[in-house]
């Protein structure tokens, strides 16, 4: 029963989704399929509570054991402070009454958004900017010529890089680069896309028919 009910629901929902693709918009099935997608969003909202509970439990557990205690305290303080500000000031971007403006928020931002724009976004951008260093170190390893394949990779990369610079047209690198990007690159990409599409279809069919059921957990 524990596995049969989810399998039956999966089968019905899967078949309905496939059929909805083949019927025109506005029919009962296509409306139903968009409704089901909305349910997914609502369920995800409830899952946030589960996720937050897990963060608090794991962090408290580690803080009690003394593992990275200062960082765990920062995490919990930030989590609850943001949550409190969100609950207290609401989710409108700009605060509604002037008394809420303590003079520290540019453009009268809601404090919840002040945290988002002044702390979370810069931190995210910092993490993203690390990528440039990682690209350099990964490219160094990838371009070391240790085999014929690595040699071809290096030559191709050099041509593509040359094709991006202002003198590329003078040395003819722009045309070679365009050919590399449009012919072999697109051909390889399409082959991967097609393979992946077949994989997706096969995986979906296995799930709809209940052949693949390990995502439901074991038999125990």
């Amino acid at each position: 029963m524990r596995r049969t009910v989810p399998l039956v629901i999966t089968f019905i929902a899967g078949v309905a989704m496939i059929v909805s693709f083949f019927v025109n918009d506005g029919t009962v099935l296509s409306v139903a399929s968009s409704k089901v997608k909305e349910w997914g969003i609502i369920i995800a909202g409830f899952a946030v509570v589960l996720g937050t509970g897990n963060i608090v439990r794991v962090t408290l557990h580690k803080a009690k054991r003394g593992e990275d205690r200062p960082f765990k305290i920062v995490l919990l303080v930030c989590l609850f402070a943001t949550m409190f500000l969100g609950l207290f000031f609401g989710i409108d971007k700009e605060i509604r009454s002037t008394w809420m403006n303590f003079g520290m928020f540019e453009r009268e931002y809601n404090p919840f958004y002040w945290i988002y724009f002044n702390i979370q976004l810069p931190l995210g951008a910092t993490m993203f900017s690390l990528l440039v260093f990682y690209i350099t170190s990964a490219a160094y390893r990838a371009f070391r010529v240790r085999s014929i394949e690595a040699g071809i990779l290096l030559t191709t990369a050099v041509i593509v890089m040359l094709g991006q610079i202002p003198i590329s047209s003078a040395i003819g690198a722009d045309k070679v680069m365009a050919w590399i990007m449009v012919v072999p690159n697109v051909a390889a990409k399409r082959a991967i896309f097609m393979g992946a599409a077949m994989g997706i279809a096969s995986m979906s069919l296995k799930i709809i028919l209940g052949i693949e059921r390990s995502y439901l957990g074991g038999d125990s």
Partner: peptide
Amino acid sequence: IGEELYAASAYLSREPQLLGSLKGSDTAK
């Protein structure tokens, strides 16, 4: 790469039914 991700469960579990579905998608390809 790509489709190998979707073939992984069949490959790792070696369940005949899952391997059969791999063969089927290869034929379709």
